[in-house]
């Protein structure tokens, strides 16, 4: 036995790998191919499906019908990814650099929501944000918000729900990247007279604050311009005084791989999500996941649903490929810098 293994060294890794690999081949790769085939089906569940290449028209049919919903999904997922980043980065930064002895506790609190059901947490937001709930009720009572104001069934509710659901996916990779930053580099930058980030801080702060508040203005149906101006001023002041050159030139570039990883980990589940749109959204906030789900599970329209799924998967693969390219070159340049 021992000599046999020594003469056939490839057997051990193959034997270790085979069961798991087979499972993934049979229950991941093969079903994916099967779904690709199904996108060329015609017929119905009752009469049975037939495969024909001439059914390629399933693709243009499905895509042209649901193009606005694809666009909406990309917008919602993109907006949610940006908001998770804006919330997660300062959080990860604080935990990594100022966490001290509370570091592990804080990290635990970031992942703690995962210990309860994802669906129940989404339902909780429905309770919190309901029209006369604990947040909107008092605001309406003292007259800050008009009586007919609502958050649920609006795009904001869906984006907020997705933002909440995937916030830990963004926070953890950024934390891991920041944790690895050699603080001596930051000190070196400071020794080399890196001060506050001027004038970049004011400009970037004005843009970030302005855009954010303009969006909020749209959401609250008041003047976006007034909101944008206030946001730009606050952002400019905040960034002017609070963001240092050493952060912009050293810390942030060193953490960019975490930002990319977090972005991917947030965007992918966000684009396919239909639970937030279903529980927090309304009839006009359906995402592509809702359409696919309904076609597969209630309408039994497998061909068109498969085509829609494949278009989504194709989009995701392109994003992943771009990311792999960027991250790959990133790693390469890091290796080159070390050498």
């Amino acid at each position: 036995m021992g000599t046999f293994l020594k003469h056939h060294r490839w057997i051990t890794p193959l034997a270790l790998l085979a069961p798991g690999l087979l499972w993934l081949l049979v229950f991941y790769l093969y079903p994916a191919l099967q779904m690709f085939m199904a996108s060329f089906w015609s017929g119905s569940l009752a009469t049975g499906f037939t495969f024909s290449l001439s059914n390629w028209t399933n693709y243009p049919d499905a895509v042209s019908t649901y193009a606005p919903i694809y666009l909406r999904s990309v917008l919602y997922a993109g907006a949610a990814t940006v908001t998770t980043f804006l919330i997660a980065y300062p959080l990860a930064y604080t935990i990594a650099f100022k966490g001290g002895r509370f570091k592990n506790l804080l990290l635990f609190l970031v992942v703690a929501p995962f210990f309860t059901s994802f669906l129940l947490r989404t339902v909780s937001w429905k309770i919190i944000l309901s029209d006369s709930g604990p947040v909107l009720g008092p605001l309406k009572a003292i007259g800050i918000l008009p009586q007919q104001f609502h958050v649920l069934a609006s795009p904001m509710a869906v984006i907020a729900g997705i933002t909440y659901a995937f916030l830990p996916f963004m926070t953890l990779p950024i934390y891991v990247a920041l944790e690895k930053v050699d603080f001596r580099l930051v000190e070196a930058a400071k020794d080399l007279y890196a001060g506050p980030w001027r004038p970049g801080g004011a400009i970037v702060g004005a843009i970030v604050g302005g855009v954010l508040m303009a969006v909020l203005g749209f959401v609250f149906n008041t003047s976006p311009l007034a909101f944008a101006i206030v946001g730009a001023v606050v952002g400019a002041v905040l960034f002017h005084f609070r963001v240092s050159e050493s952060f912009v030139r050293v810390t942030f570039p060193l953490s960019i791989s975490g930002v990319f990883a977090g972005g991917l980990l947030t965007f992918i589940p966000a684009i396919g999500d239909y639970v937030n749109a279903e529980l927090l959204g309304g009839p006009n906030t359906s995402m592509i996941g809702n359409v696919i789900q309904a076609k597969f599970l209630t309408e039994n329209d497998y061909p068109s649903a498969s085509a829609l799924s494949f278009v989504m998967m194709f989009g995701v693969l392109i994003v992943v490929a771009i990311y792999a390219k960027i991250l790959g070159t990133e790693e390469l340049s890091a290796a080159a810098a070390r050498a």
């Binding site: 079903p31 099967q34 779904m35 684009i271 396919g272 239909y274 649903a305 799924s309 998967m313």
Partner: peptide, 26 residues
Amino acid sequence: ANSLIFIPMATPEIIMGASLLTMFVS
């Protein structure tokens, strides 16, 4: 083998569920 392990983590859940359903149906 590495990519076959990585890709499921980069696939939206709905795609994995839907493709399994398609396979079981067919």
